[in-house]
Design a binder for these strands. Structure first.
Lengths: 222, 222
DNA sequence: ACCTGAACACCGTTCAAGT
DNA sequence: ACCTGAACACCGTTCAAGT
């Protein structure tokens, strides 16, 4: 829900929780996790660091509010006029892409245990699992497995995005493939074997392949 | 491999990378992720903060060295005279328990993309996937899915351990179950439904159930 | 070669003082 | 009620000086 005007040009408006969170997201997207600082944020909002504390309890709350806002935006797409597997794939890709756009939420999602963003994803997954006809006593396990896989890939993806800019992705994969191919044949026989596959690897399709793998395991539950 | 003597009583010995990493692990286990400080570490080693930098490049290197050491210890158990599924479960539980004992490695594992600890786990999983008879072109996906699931649960577990001491685990689950059961019936129909399951929930068995789910999906690949 | 510890450039957070 | 910005108590890291 980004409004038209953003950043310093809003200098005149009064401070508000909404504006603070918005500016925090910008800072996180632009300067990375390390870039979110109360001083930097205050400067962007043309105020002092102390002012922020009147609207927000502290850095943790600010981070989870920012995560909430982003995940919310990522989940409001698509009504469920599709089959359950398709809906699950769409849901999973929504989270995947959101993390791709905002790597910092990968780290953040993991830190919020039963908190709202994760719970919302869990609920959506669970409904589709139910629609899939999974027996009652296996639904929790199925939804959890999907969620954990999604979060696991998300975290990994966030780390990669942090380490390697998108534009260098191909070079990076080639370099990694070369490294893997040169590993000790005794200790890393398997990894050497699959090194080639890394070269034309696409994170997104590989991610979906994993989802499908779990879906096929879920199908076997019936 | 922890030696008999630990901590301050070693004050006489010269500083070494090994001793520093050992002390760092102690500090992380005792005081949590926030407890690892160059000043605290220096005090424990009866020296100044600057001395540590002669043996270790910085905090990041220190954290990954500590993670390496712990994961190494967790993986040297059990030779593979079992069936592949059993070996995979044992491997997964080894990582799970290591994270349970040292919650900070959960966070740390995610931060080391193609780094050694993750790669070692990947290799082990891959070998078993291969032994399972998975076709060549699906082995990467299968091993990756297992790894991501394991890391996803691990992260989650680390967060829980951070938030809730082990002794309060049962109380915490009951409270969570109560919260879930009181969620809005429209927005959280599924979550409400499975709330009961949380009460006698066991993280470890639930974790293995997820592994089995993925294994059954892998079995369908053949 | 290795260690010391003061110093530098940061943090998050607080709080008296202002409007 | 809301904002200001100096001040506090920390960080990781550096570096001249010592042995």
């Amino acid at each position: 829900m980004a409004t038209r005007t953003r950043g310093p040009e809003r200098r005149g408006e009064p401070l508000s929780r909404e504006r603070i969170v918005e500016a925090a997201i910008e800072l996180l997207d632009t300067a990375g996790e390390g870039g979110l600082t109360f001083r930097a944020l205050a400067q962007r909002l043309a105020t002092g660091p102390g002012a922020i504390y009147w609207h927000v309890a502290g850095k943790d709350e600010l981070l989870s509010a920012a995560t909430d806002a982003v995940v919310d935006g990522a989940m409001t797409t698509g009504t469920a006029d599709t089959t359950p597997p398709e809906a699950i794939r769409a849901l999973a890709l929504g989270v995947f892409d959101a993390i791709d756009d905002h790597p910092w939420i990968g780290t953040q999602l993991a830190r919020a245990p039963g908190q709202s963003p994760m719970l919302r994803i869990f609920e959506r997954l669970g409904r589709q699992v139910q629609a899939l006809g999974v027996p009652d006593d296996a639904q929790f396990t199925a939804a959890s497995a999907l969620l954990h896989y999604i979060l696991g890939v998300g975290e990994q993806n966030a780390t990669n995005a942090r380490a390697v800019p998108d534009t260098n992705r191909a070079d990076f994969l080639n370099a990694a493939a070369a490294t893997w191919a040169n590993l000790d044949p005794d200790e890393y026989a398997f990894t050497r074997n699959v090194a080639d596959r890394l070269r034309d690897h696409d994170d997104r399709t590989e991610f979906v392949a994993g989802i499908d793998l779990i879906l096929s395991g879920i199908a076997a539950l019936q």
